[in-house]
């Protein structure tokens, strides 16, 4: 039997790979930036799907880790660190560390209480970022120098940056899919399905959930790093809880725990926003009902519309 999830995923990446060539031919080169934005959202959404879709832990503070990653990068750059791989290590250490501590506390709860406590931690991080007066406080910080790859400025703009972000998206997509199908992922899904049962199979489930939470935060942190590189600017608004809400919408809209859902959901959101806001000022009047219809009539999300019954979680 052909693996349609892989096929659709392959098509998405082939298309993204071809875009830098296709767009200028179509005279739409200006859309590259939009695609980078969509890919950055997709990376964060993929990471959130690991904990919501596969882990059943609905976090309303996930965007805070994008913020942590972005600020770790920005502060690194301001301190004169320009090598992107070194900034990556710093970003992973800082987001991972914060996720480990907040996760240990948050995972004492579940369900709506987990949602509330992750929201609280997210807001704490958000307000901490607004109070960083040396790095722009509320107003944010414009960066005058960007990261380099082995001393080269190839990853700073244009196609170089595009392909770098695409590579990060591919790695996130591939890793989360592999993790979800691994022994670890199976335990995580078991704990989502029935925590009591998973425990009485002999698994210390909180340990698995915490590791998943840290992995997801680290991937979101990478999305923050790349966001700085793309926007050349960082502000606390990227860590606001509304942004966490957007991520949840992307994941649910795409299809929880499906292989390609998070990417589809993120692209749908970014493209619809761009498209609707260009034709209609009050575009949210259309966007809202559209979301309602999609959630009501496509319960498995966009992924199910393309590829029915592909939920990996079965």
């Amino acid at each position: 039997m052909m693996d349609r999830g892989a096929l659709i995923g392959g098509m998405i990446f082939a298309l993204l790979l071809a875009m830098p060539v296709l767009l200028p031919i179509l005279g739409a080169g200006y859309l590259t930036g939009l695609l980078i934005k969509a890919m950055l959202l997709a990376i964060a959404a993929i990471s959130l799907d690991l904990i919501i879709g596969h882990g059943g832990m609905v976090s309303l503070g996930h965007a805070a880790f994008i913020g942590v990653g972005a600020y770790a990068t920005a502060i690194g750059l301001e301190s004169g660190i320009e090598e992107i791989l070194l900034l990556l290590v710093i970003t992973l250490a800082v987001t991972g560390g914060i996720a480990l501590i907040t996760g240990m506390l948050a995972l004492r709860t579940s369900g709506v209480y987990f949602l509330m406590i992750t929201l609280a931690f997210g807001q704490m991080i958000y307000f901490t970022l607004t109070s960083l007066a040396a790095y722009g406080g509320d107003d944010g910080l414009t960066l005058w120098s960007l990261a380099t790859l082995f001393g080269s400025d190839i990853v700073q703009e244009g196609e170089g940056l595009y392909f770098f972000v695409l590579a990060a998206l591919f790695l996130s997509w591939f890793s989360v899919w592999r993790i979800s199908q691994s022994r670890f992922g199976r335990v995580l899904r078991a704990a989502r399905d029935n925590p009591q049962r998973a425990e009485v199979m002999g698994y210390p489930i909180v340990r698995y959930q915490l590791i998943a939470y840290v992995i997801a935060a680290c991937i979101a942190g990478v999305s923050g790093l790349l966001l700085v590189q793309y926007a050349e600017f960082v502000s606390p608004s990227i860590a606001a809880w509304q942004r966490s809400g957007d991520l949840i919408v992307a994941v649910v809209l795409g299809g929880l725990g499906s292989r390609n859902g998070a990417i589809l959901g993120a692209f749908f959101i970014v493209i619809m926003e761009e498209f609707l806001s260009s034709i209609f000022h009050e575009w949210r009047l259309i966007y809202g009902p559209l979301l309602v219809i999609l959630v009501l009539y496509a319960k498995g999300g966009l992924n199910d519309l393309i590829h029915p019954k592909s939920r990996e979680a079965s």
């Binding site: 199908q181 691994s182 199976r186 335990v187 899904r189 078991a190 399905d193």
Partner: peptide, 30 residues
């Protein structure tokens, strides 16, 4: 109390897994 979205086989295989080596394996398919 079972794992409702898992197949019958995977329900049992998940329990076998708990007694057979580490479950901290992240990349190969279970």
């Amino acid at each position: 109390s079972v794992l409702p979205t898992f197949s019958v086989l995977e329900n049992v295989a998940t329990a076998v897994q708990a007694k057979t080596g580490s479950s901290m394996r992240f990349f190969t398919s279970a």
